[in-house]
């Protein structure tokens, strides 16, 4: 079989920092074309990586055969582009979230199914071994049942996409929650399934939220609950904290040790449980390369166990939409004196 010919739609920050490097590293794909409305941006991408990938400014101008695309445009454009790709039989990997509304997410999924195309969403953190190992702990219960959990992400400022799409509610669909909590929502759905109840607080007050907290309750077996906290104004230790009957598992996203366990207040590396391996930033595989590998495997129909789940990705959009509908004000009236 020939190498999969993959096009890139949208040459912004995530394309530059994540997808282009993994496309250029991969032996399984041929990086065939860049579709980007700003010629200058696309050229600068080519220059940065020292390549000369053909550039077009619109999907209509893609006249060469391509097998798949990586879609990195603002959230509100996903539906239209996905549908046009599926009409042409092109498989789509789309950056998270799949869409801004559940209706759009369903429409994209249905179009993918009816055209027999692969649709995959970029929930890349599932490809971290530490995240997978926590999934195993949740499933096999060596530490007993789950009692509470906190997923959190906090970074004051940072990440400035070239398009500034996040400054527009129409384009992004929301603020910090849809942009940053989406990954944690994905992990929560993967670990614990669909929650039974949820509440949501943010500081948006009609604009875009910079801080948000969602609380979820699970009623299965013995009930447990937890929160997803996200902040774009303060720095938090990003990752998840899951309390089991016998201890608290701490999974850090960007800081070593990536995985620790706390028993009676004493924290230590989680390396005594079976199959724990070496969970460190140094040895962690590149998640974008791993997800590209899974995308190509799905296209080829390889018989392997996949980590991504399109059902979870669609539900992610549904639950985000419902959370926003249920929003209450976060207590942050600090300047009303």
């Amino acid at each position: 079989m020939h190498k999969l010919r993959i096009g890139l739609i949208g040459a912004g920050m995530i394309a530059e920092s994540a997808h282009v490097p993994s496309l250029l590293r991969s032996d399984h794909v041929e990086f065939s074309i860049i579709v980007e409305s700003s010629l200058e941006r696309a050229r600068s991408l080519n220059n940065k990586f020292g390549v000369n990938i053909p550039i077009v400014t619109s999907l209509d101008d893609v006249t060469t055969e391509i097998d798949a695309v990586i879609l990195c445009t603002p959230n509100d454009s996903h539906k239209e582009i996905c549908l046009r790709c599926f009409e042409r039989g092109i498989h789509v990997f789309v950056e998270k979230p799949l869409a801004n509304t559940y209706q759009d997410a369903r429409a994209i999924l249905e179009a993918a199914l009816s055209s027999n195309c692969v649709l995959m969403v970029g929930y890349c953190t599932r490809f971290w071994p530490s995240v997978q190992y926590v999934k195993e702990i949740v499933n096999t219960c060596p530490l007993g049942k789950v009692k509470r959990f906190v997923f959190q992400y906090g970074a004051a400022g940072g990440w400035a996409p070239y398009s500034n799409y996040m400054l527009s509610k129409k384009k992004s669909g929301g603020g910090a929650f849809i942009i940053n909590a989406s990954h944690y929502l994905d992990r929560m759905l993967w670990y614990f399934g669909i929650p039974d109840e949820f509440s949501f607080w943010d500081d948006a007050k009609g604009g875009l939220e910079a801080n948000a907290i969602a609380e979820f309750k699970y009623a299965k077996d013995e009930s447990f609950k937890g929160i997803i906290r996200v902040s774009k104004t303060v720095n938090l230790d990003s990752g998840c904290f899951i309390e089991f009957e016998k201890g608290i598992v701490i999974l850090r996203d960007w800081k070593d040790p990536l995985l620790t366990i706390k028993f009676s207040g004493i924290e230590r590396k989680l390396n005594f449980l079976a199959k724990s391996g070496d969970f460190s930033l140094r040895t962690r595989p590149d998640m974008y390369s791993c997800q590209l590998r899974e995308f190509t495997s799905r296209i080829k129909g390889e018989n392997i166990q996949y980590l991504s789940s399109i059902e979870d990705a669609v539900y992610n959009v549904k639950i985000t939409e419902e959370l926003y509908k249920k929003r209450s004000d976060l207590d942050c009236d600090w300047y009303k004196i």
């Binding site: 400022g157 500034n164 948006a204 009609g206 910079a210």
Partner: peptide
């Protein structure tokens, strides 16, 4: 920098 805009995005 737009990356720092978050703290004021809720205002009009």
């Amino acid at each position: 920098s737009p990356g720092n805009a978050w703290s004021i995005l809720r205002f009009e």
